[in-house]
């Protein structure tokens, strides 16, 4: 539909309604947290973020987010490629499974880890529950669909002839992937990767249940915020929340810039 300049009074009412809704719902809470950053000045916040327990929590969050991004990128590309290029019995079922992590409550994800690997779990001997490995496992799970869902449509739109021609000319699978497939799907992979990172940085419920939230061992940045609220350490909670918020916004901005660069390239 073509854009119209708002002249009619109903148009004005609609615009005011939409902007006011976004203002109350999104902008007011964001303003509240930004304002909080300047209430006591920056120094107390810097102090609490650089305290040992906060640094430890941030380090765990960063390690798990990066590991999650690596695993989900490699496995995501593989899963997307198999789902697009091959026909096999049960493909529709497998395809439908991919979206499931988006609607499974993080708390249930954590609960499953306890049932599988907890003290009386099915695989109790593996000692995974209440360790950082359990947190990595649940974070990989909750962000599994992003790369798959970004890459699949691109692969589907890419005709298989190029790949087949490369095979016919004797190129190995790896060479074909590197030279033919990867350049085409790269923007989608990066986009999925950024979404994965954002989701992994903010994971709370599943990581708290599966990891147990032991301070200095399985406490990530979000669990640190949660504990700080309970300990009435408001400065700690707010400064970590602001830091995570700023990182998320930076991630989003980089995503938007990526999109613009891509659309400019394709023009």
């Amino acid at each position: 539909m073509a854009e119209k300049r708002a002249t009619h009074w109903t148009a004005l009412v609609l615009i005011v309604l939409v902007v006011a809704y976004a203002g109350i719902l999104l902008i007011a809470p964001i303003t509240a947290i930004v304002q909080q950053a300047f209430v006591d000045g920056i120094q107390p916040m810097l102090d609490s973020i650089t305290a040992p327990d906060a640094r430890e929590a941030l380090r765990l969050t960063a390690i798990i987010a990066l590991a999650t991004a690596a695993i989900n990128t490699v496995m995501g590309i593989l899963v997307a490629w198999v789902l697009v290029r091959y026909r096999f019995p049960g493909r529709c079922f497998i395809d439908g499974l991919v979206d499931l992590p988006f609607v499974m409550s993080p708390v249930i994800v954590g609960y499953v880890v306890i049932v599988l690997f907890g003290r009386e779990g099915w695989f109790a001997g593996l000692s995974i529950a209440f360790t950082p490995r359990a947190m990595l496992l649940v974070t990989v799970f909750v962000s599994l669909p992003f790369v798959v869902r970004e890459v699949m449509p691109v692969l589907r739109a890419m005709p298989p002839e190029q790949e087949e021609a490369a095979y016919t000319l004797g190129a190995s699978r790896l060479l074909t992937f590197r030279r033919i497939i990867l350049p085409t799907i790269r923007p989608a992979v990066i986009y999925g990767l950024v979404l994965t990172l954002a989701r992994a940085l903010g994971e709370f419920g599943a990581a708290a249940v599966a990891g147990g939230g032991v301070q200095g061992y399985t406490e990530n940045a979000t669990i640190y915020i949660f504990r700080s609220i309970h300990d009435r350490n408001d400065t700690g909670a707010y400064s970590m929340a602001i830091l995570l918020g700023v990182i998320s916004v930076a991630v989003l901005l980089s995503m938007n810039i990526l999109k613009q660069v891509q659309s400019r390239r394709s023009q």
Binding site: P29, I33, Q35, V249
Partner: peptide, 17 residues
């Protein structure tokens, strides 16, 4: 933006407001 912001941080924002 809501896709990027951790939901725990969303909760904190609403508490502040």
């Amino acid at each position: 933006l809501p896709f990027a912001i951790p939901t725990l941080v969303t909760g904190i924002m609403l508490v502040l407001l």
